[in-house]
Amino acid sequence: MAKPKVATASLAGCFGCHMSILDIDERILKLAELVEFHKSPINDIKKFSERCLVGLIEGGCANDENVHVLQDFRKNCDVLISLGDCATMGGLPAMRNHVPLEECLAEAYLNGPTVHNPTKQIPNDPEIPLLLNKVYPLHEVVKIDLHLPGCPPPADAIWEVLVALLNNKPIDLKYGLLRYD
């Protein structure tokens, strides 16, 4: 029987959650026995070609590209997991939610204390995704099956969740694995 597939993506995140996925030490070998990584920055597969059992997404939705990737994951994964604080609540990027977008751009590219931008132009290439009015937690954009907070979530928590899912067992994180920092 083919191994169940796992896909991962980082949207408006810092890859810290991905580091945590890899941080399960030697269990990564065991994981590789249990599952096959499909579309993921870990192996650089860019497009879904098969249905996946689990999708792990770090980062919130900050721009239109994030939204499309997330919708693509929703379409191709049975169980979609919101991984880390940015995915579950917007995280650090959501700190801009208190400031109108126009001011954010001005601060980032024109007025900020460390900005060096002699042309005084805000980058506007058509290839650059457009920012959303605010950063959205994933569950406000698509239906999410599981939330695993943490910045990043502990490697053990990711491991326990994946193992429970693969064995069709209820998830019962022991104290200390559920955390918001």
């Binding site: 457009l130 920012l131 406000e140 239906k143």
Partner: peptide
């Protein structure tokens, strides 16, 4: 398809479209 009917991409992009003019 699992998308939240409450999320409106066009509305969420309205400011960027206005500010960046594309």
């Amino acid at each position: 398809d699992g998308r939240q009917p409450t999320f409106d991409l066009r509305a969420a992009l309205s400011e960027a479209v206005r500010v960046q003019g594309r």
